[in-house]
């Protein structure tokens, strides 16, 4: 019983770390987002946020 619980926690932590790092890398290197940045024009009124 003890082994599977510990293994499960380690697997969860590993998944979390791997996924988090992966998502961060994709976010930083996403080519679409850089294109959007280049194409962004200054708005008339600033948005509080976007959905």
């Amino acid at each position: 019983m003890a082994g599977p619980v510990a293994v499960l926690i380690v697997v969860l932590a590993g998944l979390g770390v791997a996924g988090g790092v992966g998502a961060a890398l994709v976010g930083v290197n996403d080519p679409d987002s850089s294109v959007q940045l280049e194409q962004r024009t200054e708005p008339e009124v600033i948005d509080y946020g976007t959905r």
Binding site: L12, L15, G16, A18, G19, A23, V26, T50, R51
Partner: peptide, 22 residues
Amino acid sequence: IWNADVVPVSRANPALPVLTVA
């Protein structure tokens, strides 16, 4: 949160829904 601009990139972690349930 409603505002996508303030959401950390790691929240797009594809494993998160499964991890959240766990």
